[in-house]
Computed example of a mutant assay.
Amino acid sequence: MTDARPILFVTNLVAPDRVGAFAELHARVPIELALFGGRSHHATAAVDDPPVPHRHVTQNEIFALAGSGDFRAVVAGTAGRTALPAAFLGAARARTPFVLWSALWAHARSPAHIAARPLMSAIYRRAAHVVTYGEHVSAFARAQGARRTTIAPQAVDNAFWSAPPGPGTAPPRQLSGGTPSFAVMFAGRPARAKGLWELLDAWRASGLDTAPAALLLAGVPPEQIPGGVGGAVHALGHLDALSLRNFLHHSSVLVVPSVPTRTFREPWGLIANEAMNQRLPIIATDAVGAAAGGLVRHERNGLVVPHSDPAALAAALVRLHEDPALCSALGAHAARDVAPYTHAAWADAFAGVLTSPSGTRTPPTEVLA
């Protein structure tokens, strides 16, 4: 007899880039989202009313919800303070299979994270399945004792992000002097882990500020930019998706210069998917999940450089500036390589886990340690 109960999917929020993914998953297997809000690493705000069944909860309510027996499996991500252990322990109380959706590929080193490692180790070992962002996350999960891992590829709405600007859409008018011949794009929060300061150091070292080139900083308010970086640096502030796509279309390369910190290592970087859909090569550091996970590939569709190394980043910028043919070839490969990274592929992988008897069977010999 088929179990008609839905899957409980616990996460903090639904970012705009996740809407299509969750809709695709719900079309394959019934899910209900439990959204507890809170901090987001996404540059865009949450969607308050996603088009799939959902409820807004507090983290304190998740244990009882997961333990209610109303769901045939419980999925939880790694966001939040108590949401993940509450979902895990609630599922254990109800003897409901638990699936971890993991973005982690390194241990965080804050006191709270260090104290939580024994519980996290138990979650990895006891989870019926761990669904990951990529092979970099799967390898880390297996090292923590996960028995079954599946990659659900990180994806955006490729149809939207690959589209050209609409009729009558001019090149970005925010730039004095018009569109530069070589435009370097960055999109992210002005946070330490995003590597903005390393990028600014690299820009100064590259000498491109004296060329017909520009560094475009989406998501960065003008007041966040220190003096001395030159007039070719443009802090664009927040951009909506259409404006961001327009800037990507008129750019030459996207830079994702993330650096690891005590509490964060870039799980993926969906801006790489978005830019690759616009045929942009990517310069990424080795601390970017999209590079560690295999989407951004050195000298195939971009350049991968060591993190926290402005000199290496500057050399990569100069190389692409001086070799337009290489820049164009990497961009063409980027568009082809990102094409399979779709919401449908993400949902297919997740649904395969949730509908497979072995995918949601809790390992029988594990006990809480």
Rank of each mutant, 00 (worst) to 15 (best):
A4T: 14
L8G: 07
T11L: 13
G20H: 10
E24H: 10
H26K: 01
A34I: 05
G37I: 01
H42G: 12
A43E: 10
T44I: 01
D48E: 15
D49T: 13
P51F: 10
H56Y: 10
H56I: 09
V57S: 11
N60Y: 03
F63Q: 04
V75P: 00
A76T: 07
T78I: 09
A79D: 14
A83N: 02
L84C: 09
P85T: 03
P85E: 06
A91E: 05
A92S: 10
A92M: 02
R95M: 01
P97I: 02
V99I: 13
W101M: 04
A103C: 01
A106D: 12
A108K: 07
I114Y: 00
I114N: 02
S121F: 02
A122S: 14
R125T: 04
Y133T: 06
G134H: 08
H136D: 08
F140N: 05
A141D: 13
Q144M: 12
Q154K: 11
V156E: 02
D157F: 08
A159I: 05
A163Q: 11
P167M: 04
P167N: 01
P171V: 10
S176V: 10
S181A: 11
A191F: 10
K194S: 06
G195W: 09
E198N: 13
L199W: 13
D201L: 11
R204E: 08
A205S: 14
G207K: 06
L208R: 11
D209H: 15
P212F: 07
L217Q: 07
P221T: 02
P221S: 05
I225K: 09
P226D: 05
A232R: 15
A232D: 12
L239W: 10
L242W: 09
L242K: 06
N246C: 12
N246A: 12
F247M: 03
L248M: 15
H249A: 10
H249S: 07
H250P: 05
V259I: 14
V259P: 09
V259T: 14
T263D: 15
A275V: 09
M276V: 01
N277Y: 03
Q278G: 09
I282L: 12
I282N: 10
I283V: 15
T285V: 02
A290P: 06
G293E: 05
E299A: 14
N301L: 03
G302V: 02
G302W: 13
L303N: 04
D309E: 04
A312D: 03
L313A: 01
A316L: 03
L317M: 13
R319W: 07
D323I: 00
P324L: 07
L326V: 08
D337Q: 12
A344C: 03
W346H: 15
A347E: 06
V353I: 04
T355P: 00
T360W: 00
R361K: 10
P364G: 05
P364F: 01
T365G: 14
T365R: 11
L368N: 01
L368E: 08
